[in-house]
Write a protein that binds this DNA or RNA. Structure first.
Lengths: 201, 201
DNA sequence: TTCATACTGATACCTGGTGCCAAAAAAAGC
DNA sequence: GCTTTTTTTGGCACCAGGTATCAGTATGAA
């Protein structure tokens, strides 16, 4: 029994649907040259849901509460956070962050990581960037993982302003350095119970 | 004739479907207490597509090749650009750019507009932000339209660096000001024919 | 009363399927 | 060769969630 054709077809089927989830069974018959029943048996075996279910799943994913809020929250994953002291976040440079020609990250992404970390590290209800002095030491490139470290230099809980210094590294090379001045709404609220302010998602 | 109910129902219908696009007509009959035919007439009048079309549209949107590349290209719409001289861009503060609690834009969005304009205004093959000195004068808020104006202060075509000053306004109020130093790859290439470098999308 | 608008019901039809059964075809085993 | 098993195909009933169309009813205004 020529077993391969079936497996090959299964592979092709999976690939086709992955590439284009909008294909109906009828269209797949054209592409794979088998009857529509075979397509359906194949989907059954591979547990690929029908077109409508696929679309529904995609719609649900994109409708998700955490939907497509790309720059909404903190940029990068927070690895460590000691409020009013220091914080560390990780941000991987991906395709969408770089100049396509050079593969070098656009400055505002590197800045965004540093800025959102600087705001997140401030233990206050509302914290806003007032000013910043920044330097891009060397370009960050596609695929590189940027580790940003933020240090609160003068918390100024009463004063309404805090100074935060951020250094971003790729490996042990520094790529970015910034001095941020952050407005804070009031004295540290210090609500107990680990209540977080909105910047920490 | 009690006309209001219909308009109210139309409003409710729109709202319901906007809130939850996964509602079938049958479920809507329960919510609005009218027959399924009425629901369908209403959808027709309001030109709200059927459930499956809605899901398909959502799926397509999320599957789009240009999907969710939020910070990919220049942030904001370029309104005017005079290479190596000046540029103007417009950026509207939307839901996804603000702190949900306060409705104030996160700093890195405002910065991103200014930064990408500063890079775009440089007439060179490769232009990268080297350093910047920025100030957030007053918060930008949800719905506000930010106009950024960039001026090349010292083009330094030969020197490999350019200074660009950017001012961002909402109406006639300044919200942001930044001094950028931009690395440029070489002397102005000045390729004729309006060839654009990659930052100008 | 008459008329217009709004609503409801009923029916035929469509797409893109599922589920099931049987027949045909192909491959494998002997 | 023939038999058995697997694979493929065809056919039919059925479903959800609609569209399209026609007819009937309610309701209120002129």
């Amino acid at each position: 029994m020529e077993r391969l054709p079936k497996r090959q077809r299964h592979q092709q089927l999976s690939r086709l649907i992955e590439e284009n989830p909008f294909l109906t069974d009828r269209e797949l018959t054209r592409l794979l040259k088998v009857s529509i029943q075979t397509i359906r048996l194949d989907r059954l075996e591979l547990s690929i849901p029908e077109l409508r279910e696929r679309l529904k799943l995609m719609a649900e994913r994109s409708y998700d509460p955490v939907r497509s809020l790309p720059l909404h929250e903190v940029i990068g994953d927070i690895l460590d956070l000691q409020l009013d002291k220091s914080g560390i976040s990780l941000f991987e440079i991906r395709e969408e962050h770089v100049f396509s020609r050079s593969g070098i990250a656009r400055g505002h992404h590197v800045f965004a990581q540093a800025n959102s970390l600087a705001v997140a590290v401030i233990n206050d209800e509302i914290a806003l960037t007032a000013s910043a002095d920044i330097r891009f030491i060397r370009p960050a490139r596609l695929g590189e993982k940027c580790i940003a470290k933020a240090y609160v230099r003068s918390s100024g809980a009463q004063k309404g302003k805090a100074k935060v210094e951020v250094f971003t590294y790729v490996g042990d090379e520094m790529v970015f350095q910034g001095n941020f001045v952050i407005y804070r709404s009031a004295g540290e609220p210090d609500r107990e119970g680990g209540d977080v302010h909105e910047d920490r998602h």
